[in-house]
């Protein structure tokens, strides 16, 4: 990349650090719509704590998987790591100037075509417009959606949106990639292609990848280390395979299986 040299003074060897990080969202009265009514005492009181004090250091290079059930705080953690949302308490230190978040449903302006969406993503990832346009053919080819690439994003399925988003991000020299659950909606072929590309990026360019998942398989395949989040706390972390062994055993709530007996 032409204008984004690595900050040389940074010899911490870390991608991102979270120091005693807490995060809450406000639950507003009035159906959650911010209004004058919520400025009063009653409307503001309810705080919903999602992250309850975590300390995490993600090293530079390689992949880290974050697993946990729905509502465990995986997505919030990812959003905190790249600054989409600020912590309520604690410190987040991101060592990359241009973290790149890929999340489902987020960041897709419906009126744009796939091509324009990819251009915007590329520019946000740190490229110049001309650089993105130079790579557009490759992005289009990687997305594999053919003629739909020049149709509005609102006509896309979830899978197609993800394909365009992923294709753009894969070609933008991102140094720090945060992927939120998006692999889950791709079909088998595309998932495999993404895995191979991610592995190649990690191996050749030293990209740091953090991604969330419900399931253990992609974490085992891609990651050296894993974090297991439950109730906004780290339940277990360490070697990916070890964490996944425990996670898979405890994955299913036994109460749900009672009727089977």
């Amino acid at each position: 990349m032409t204008e984004q040299p690595l900050p040389v003074h940074d010899d911490s060897g870390l991608a991102v650090e979270l120091i005693d990080v807490h995060k809450h969202y406000e639950r507003l009265a009035n159906g959650g719509i911010p209004s004058l009514r919520n400025l009063g005492r009653e409307g503001r009181k309810a705080e919903h704590w999602v992250i309850n004090g975590v300390n995490i250091s993600i090293p530079r290079g390689g992949a880290t998987g974050i697993v946990g059930l729905n509502g465990a705080g995986k997505s919030t953690l990812l959003r905190l790591m790249c600054g989409v949302t600020a912590p309520s308490r604690g410190q987040v230190i991101c060592h990359y100037a241009n973290p790149c978040l890929l999340a489902l449903g987020a960041g897709v302006p419906n009126v744009l075509t796939g091509r324009e969406y990819a251009t915007t993503l590329g520019i946000l990832a740190g490229l110049d417009k001309t650089e993105v346009l130079d790579r557009m053919d490759k992005i289009k080819e990687f997305s594999g959606i053919g003629g739909a690439f020049d149709q509005p994003v609102r006509t896309y399925s979830q899978g197609m949106r993800m394909r365009v988003g992923f294709a753009a991000v894969m070609h933008c020299d991102a140094e720090f990639l945060l992927i939120d659950e998006v692999l889950a909606v791709g079909d088998k072929d595309f998932k495999a292609k993404c895995m191979v590309t991610l592995q190649r990026l990690i191996a050749t360019t030293g990209t740091t990848v953090v991604f969330t998942s419900h399931s253990a398989a992609p974490v085992r395949k891609l990651c050296e280390q894993a974090l297991w989040i439950e109730g906004g706390l780290i339940k277990m972390d360490g070697d990916a395979d070890e964490v996944m062994d425990v996670y898979e055993d405890l994955d299913v709530n036994p109460d749900l299986l009672v009727n089977e007996d």
């Binding site: 940074d10 991101c94 100037a97």
Partner: peptide, 18 residues
């Protein structure tokens, strides 16, 4: 919220940022 809360990116890139 009186306790410290912060998010930081690498320093020295504010002109580039602009």
């Amino acid at each position: 919220m009186t306790t410290t809360a912060s998010f930081t990116l690498p320093r020295g890139s504010s002109r580039q940022h602009f």
